[in-house]
Amino acid sequence: MTKQGPTARQRKLASELRRLREAAGLTPEQAAGLLGWSRPKLVKIETASQLPSVGDVDRILGAYGPAEPLRLALLKLARDVRRRGWWASYSDVLPGSYAELEHAASRIRTWQPQLVHGLLQTEDYARTLIRGHFPDLAAEEIDRRVQARMTRRAMLARENPPRLECVLAEEVLRRPVGGRDVMRAQLRALLFAIERPNVSLRVVPIEQGYYPSIGTGGLVLFEFDSLADLSVAYMETIAGGRYEENVTEVRACKVMFERVADAALDEKDSADFIRTIAEEM
């Protein structure tokens, strides 16, 4: 069995504990001495190489002295790290960190220059993509990946769902992935999705010409209400996805997303545009 890496919660906890140490003006050696631990133990916790117990986290927070609301939030995060989500059942086909971020986020903003975002894909559209990405997979493996993607999609209809703000390039809507019938159904599914109050969809039309970030890959911003959860950016490249948690870099990603969104049609005009393309398909 493939060893799973640290979850999004564990990475976030590690990042916050490291930030608090630095804010307290302590080196790893000084902090480890204050805690009565070895330096390697502290470093492993701060790099998400070792999962700390709730008692370990409480001890660290006692030494660093954060404000009470943050202390309570981090202790809750330490308890939640061990909680298994629905995605654990699909760990063989679905990156747990991405699914966990998606599940926990209060707002997801995404720029998609090539494909419909996974949370908005129909089963046939998703199956076409998965079969194309993994041409050597057995039919049952493809089915399992499709099932995982459809399970992800259900989060938009749950109680207290995240807000999804999606900006798409017009090219995404006109490319007949799976054939015209499949794509027509996908476009109708997008029109159905935007009837939800928590889903926003806007389109950057081709006639816009140049737009910010042209020539780069897609971007997903995971944003949270919790004090202990800072925003995370996920960038799609030809070599695979990359997570960015550095505050400065995430802020730059947010600025770029907003610049792309400024080039898009508004929600009503975007819906009319999608409807027209569906009729032409």
Rank of each mutant, 00 (worst) to 15 (best):
T2G: 03
T2M: 14
Q4I: 10
P6E: 09
T7Y: 05
K12A: 09
L17W: 12
R18G: 06
R18D: 07
R18W: 04
L20E: 10
A24S: 15
A24H: 09
G25Y: 07
P28D: 09
A32N: 11
L35T: 14
L35F: 12
S38R: 14
I45R: 08
I45F: 02
Q50S: 14
L51C: 08
V54R: 13
V57W: 09
A63H: 11
Y64C: 07
G65V: 04
A67T: 04
E68K: 10
P69M: 03
L74D: 08
K76N: 15
L77H: 13
R79Y: 05
R79N: 14
D80C: 06
D80M: 07
G85E: 03
W86N: 08
A88R: 12
P95W: 11
L101Y: 14
E102T: 06
H103N: 15
H103A: 12
A104K: 11
A104I: 13
W111P: 02
Q112N: 07
P113T: 06
Q114K: 02
H117Y: 01
L120V: 00
Q121V: 00
E123H: 02
Y125N: 01
A126P: 05
T128W: 00
T128S: 13
I130K: 02
R131V: 02
G132M: 01
H133Y: 05
P135F: 04
D136W: 01
L137M: 06
A138T: 11
A138P: 02
I142L: 10
R144S: 06
R144H: 09
R145D: 03
R145K: 14
V146P: 07
A154T: 14
R158A: 13
E159R: 13
E159S: 10
P161D: 11
P161L: 09
P162G: 04
P162L: 07
L164A: 06
E165N: 08
E165M: 03
A169I: 00
A169C: 03
E170W: 09
E171T: 10
P176H: 05
P176D: 03
V177R: 03
G178I: 04
G178L: 02
V182W: 03
M183C: 03
A185M: 04
Q186S: 09
R188T: 04
F192W: 00
F192M: 02
I194W: 02
E195I: 03
R196P: 00
N198E: 13
V199D: 06
R202F: 01
G209S: 11
G209F: 01
P212A: 12
S213C: 12
I214V: 14
T216Y: 06
G217L: 07
L221A: 08
V232G: 12
V232M: 11
M235L: 15
E236G: 07
A239E: 06
A239S: 09
G240Y: 01
G241M: 04
R242E: 05
E245I: 11
T248E: 15
E249A: 15
C253V: 07
K254Y: 00
K254L: 11
F257H: 13
F257V: 11
A263C: 11
A264G: 07
L265V: 10
K268F: 03
S270N: 06
D272T: 13
D272K: 13
F273G: 02
I274K: 09
T276V: 08
I277E: 06
E280L: 15
